[in-house]
C-alpha cells in the first residue's frame, strides 16, 4: 500500500528536488529548545507542589516525544521535495499527513523569500508562494539562500509572464 501512495504524491518521471538536510538540524534544535523549556516549567511546578512522581512522568513523556519527533523531523525533511515544471510548481511533503500542491505559475500573486532566525544561523532560507487562495500553502523551506533567491526570481518571472489576475 505504501508504494502506491508514494506514487500518488511524488510519481517517478519528474526531477524531484530535495531540500537541504541541514533543515532537520534546525528543526530538531527548535523542537528541543521548546520541549526543554515547557517540560522544565511543568516539571518544576509539579515538584514544587510536592508531586515529584508526576514531574518524573512528565520528563519521561518528554523524552519519548523528543525521540519520536527527532525521528519524524528527519523523515519529514527527507521527503520534502519540489519540482518546477513548464507551467506549474509542485511541492510535496509530510509523513503522517501527506500533501501535494500544484500551483500554476499564472496564479501566483507573490513570491516571498523568508529566513527565520534559526534558519539564518544555519544558512538556510524559504521560498513561499501566494495565490489569491489562502489555502494554497506552497512553501519550500531548507534552501541555500543564493538558490532560494534564484528560485524566487525564476518563479516571479514566470508568474509575471503568465499572470492572469484572479
Amino acid at each position: 500500500m505504501a508504494g502506491k501512495s508514494d506514487s500518488t504524491f511524488a510519481p517517478p518521471g519528474e526531477e524531484w528536488r530535495p531540500i537541504s538536510p541541514k533543515l532537520a538540524v534546525v528543526r530538531r534544535l527548535v523542537m528541543l529548545f521548546w520541549l526543554i523549556v515547557i517540560t522544565a516549567a511543568v516539571a518544576i511546578a509539579f515538584s514544587v507542589g510536592g508531586y515529584a512522581v508526576v514531574a518524573g512522568a512528565v520528563v519521561a513523556l518528554a523524552v519519548i516525544i523528543v525521540i519520536w519527533q527527532w525521528w519524524l523531523i528527519g523523515r519529514q525533511v527527507k521527503v520534502y521535495r519540489y519540482v518546477e515544471r513548464e507551467e506549474d510548481l509542485l511541492v510535496t511533503s509530510g509523513i503522517l499527513f501527506r500533501r501535494l500542491v500544484i500551483v500554476p505559475y499564472g496564479r501566483m500573486q507573490l513570491v516571498d523569500l523568508v529566513a527565520g532566525p534559526f534558519e539564518r544561523m544555519a544558512g538556510l532560507a524559504s521560498v513561499q508562494l501566494h495565490t489569491a487562495a489562502a489555502t494554497t500553502d506552497a512553501k519550500i523551506p531548507g534552501l541555500v539562500p543564493s538558490d532560494a533567491a534564484q528560485l524566487r526570481d525564476r518563479l516571479a518571472a514566470r508568474g509575471e509572464q503568465r499572470s492572469a489576475g484572479i
Binding site: 499527513f97 500542491v101 500551483v103 496564479r107 506552497a138 484572479i166
Partner: peptide, 8 residues
C-alpha cells in the same frame, strides 16, 4: 487557484 492532494 491551485490544487492539492492530502492524506492523513
Amino acid at each position: 487557484q491551485s490544487v492539492r492532494v492530502t492524506q492523513g
